[in-house]
Amino acid sequence: MERLTGKTAIVTGVSYSEGIGTATCLSLAKAGADIFFTHWSPTDEAEGRLERDFPNKLCEKIISFEVRSDHIQLDLSIEESPNTLLNAAQESLGTANILVNNATYEVPTSFRTLTPETLDNHYQMNNRGTLG
């Protein structure tokens, strides 16, 4: 990977140690990028994968690569969240150069169990949430 020193990356959906978001954060940090990431504990707890104090531990790990890091707990399905995210990242680490939209909404379903609410939730997070 090209050296990313002086770049700032935002990575969404970084909530547990074995996830794609965590791997992405660590890869970008190893390449020299500062990392600002989001997480959302209520979903992780509901899905039985909440790791207490994980965001702070990940921040420490990222900083060990001699880059800066910060995070915010944020529900990206809320209309104002993209602006909240960009403002928080700007205030903490400066202007972001890289965006990795890793946060998603998904539930096990089939054509028999699919509901309008499931479709609305999917659209809100996976489509509208990334547009800001």
Rank of each mutant, 00 (worst) to 15 (best):
V100M: 10
A31P: 11
A9Y: 01
K7A: 01
N101S: 00
K57Y: 09
N121S: 04
L50Y: 11
E60N: 05
V67E: 06
L119A: 15
T104L: 15
D75C: 02
T8V: 09
G13D: 04
G129Y: 11
N83G: 12
E80A: 05
A31H: 12
E2I: 15
H71Q: 08
P116L: 10
T8K: 00
P108V: 14
G32D: 07
K57T: 04
K61V: 00
A9L: 07
V100N: 01
P116R: 15
A9I: 05
L131H: 04
L58E: 00
F37W: 03
V11F: 05
A33F: 04
S77Q: 07
L76I: 09
A96D: 02
L28G: 03
I62Q: 00
I62G: 01
E2W: 15
Q124G: 11
L76G: 01
L86M: 13
T43Y: 14
S92T: 01
I62E: 00
E117M: 09
M125N: 06
I35W: 01
N102G: 03
I98N: 00
E18G: 14
E91M: 07
A33H: 02
I78R: 15
D120M: 11
F37I: 12
H122R: 10
D120A: 11
A103C: 02
W40V: 11
R112S: 13
L86K: 15
L50E: 07
A103R: 04
N56W: 13
E66D: 13
L85E: 04
S69D: 00
F111Q: 13
T24D: 06
L50W: 12
P42S: 10
R49K: 08
R49I: 05
T22N: 14
N97I: 05
G132T: 07
P116H: 12
N126V: 03
R3F: 08
S64Y: 06
E79V: 06
D53S: 10
